[in-house]
Design a protein around this nucleic acid. Structure first.
Lengths: 187, 187
DNA sequence: TCACCCATGTAAGGGGTTACATGATTGC
DNA sequence: GCAATCATGTAACCCCTTACATGGGTGA
């Protein structure tokens, strides 16, 4: 039994929630999971073929208004693989945050550099936060409050809010230190 | 002028702070930046060669107690490239968080699944938090409070604390809903 | 008619991890 | 003598993004 690939996980989860075409999986990813799990066409289409060969999903031609398309749904084996994966305790967590790396090395440069980096970070996270709030505003009123996908959104909004506030606190500390002539402290 | 590669950034930053060998750069990464910017030997050594060919760093043989090693320091051009990069406004931010992906799809499975995923997430983040606190405890007392690298540590600790608390709040909400027989709400 | 969206794919190339290979030195 | 650490590198392999290619449908 081969382990699910990175893309395989998001594909299986997506088609288990509802039968979907590759195109629709990509849309779901871009609207929802992209903030913590991205996927591109270059991964999705080949992986759908592999998953079908492995017997975890099955595709069906389902033209929509003359436009031909192929939707996939999980097999019983695929559903079991999905349950096994969700039930497993290990889960990767990788972050690549260039702004933090810049901040880390800002000490080797002039004072004041760190401040600019923190302000940039704030602006970037605020933009993402705005986009997440738009997603939240589009959630239908009747949706169950504790639906897991809404919990993910709640988490995303919360962590971005926290980050923006941290940037503002930190920027103020750096401003004060610079104004007090404690440039050395900000190196 | 070619843009710095992903590894190139952390290498230049590391050798600008102090002359270092590839081995020492890897140590720095593993102790400090790995939480937001990882790098492996398979990237570091080839990239050091490329950076030297590009004239951004220069290496010098510097055996340490009979053990031969080669330390690198930035050239003037390398320092300029580092400053340009730190001063640029764009910065990638990519996250791959498997626990969140599991949570996102937990709705398609039995109720109670989401709760287990949230508890796992809490435990994983708590472990990272513990490790970050160890790093913090090892910081010498006289270090300037606003040193940029310490700000990164402060950020890491804060964001992990926030996440652990979010998991605990969310787990409680899910527990209550399950106890009240509102299983449907937790799907 | 034209722009935009639906829909499926491939190719090239960069990014990154893991495992392997090698060998010297230090401390117990 | 042995284990751990210092030290440098390579090869295989997966992951992932970007760009390209193709073609049909829908609505203004």
């Amino acid at each position: 039994m081969n382990a699910l690939s990175s893309v395989g996980k998001v594909i299986l989860g997506a088609v288990a929630a509802a039968p979907r075409s590759g195109y629709e999986i990509k849309q779901l990813v871009d609207r929802s999971t992209r903030f913590f799990w991205a996927a591109s066409y270059g991964q999705i289409y080949p992986e759908l073929t592999r998953l079908e060969e492995a017997g975890l999903v099955e595709g069906e031609d389902d033209a929509r208004g003359g436009r031909k398309r192929r939707v996939y749904r999980p097999t019983d084996e695929g559903l079991q693989a999905l349950r096994d994966w969700v039930g497993s305790t290990d889960a990767t967590h990788e972050v690549r945050d260039e702004a933090l790396l810049k901040l880390f090395f800002a000490g080797a440069l002039e004072p004041g550099r760190a401040l600019a980096v923190v302000r940039n970070l704030r602006d970037a996270r605020q933009e993402t936060l705005d986009r997440l709030r738009e997603v939240q505003a589009a959630v239908p009123a009747g949706a169950p409050e504790l639906a897991p996908s809404l919990l993910c959104l709640d988490y995303g909004i919360g962590v971005h809010e926290w980050t923006v506030e941290w940037c503002e606190r930190t920027a103020k500390r750096l401003e004060t230190a610079l104004a007090d002539g404690k440039e050395a402290a900000a190196r």
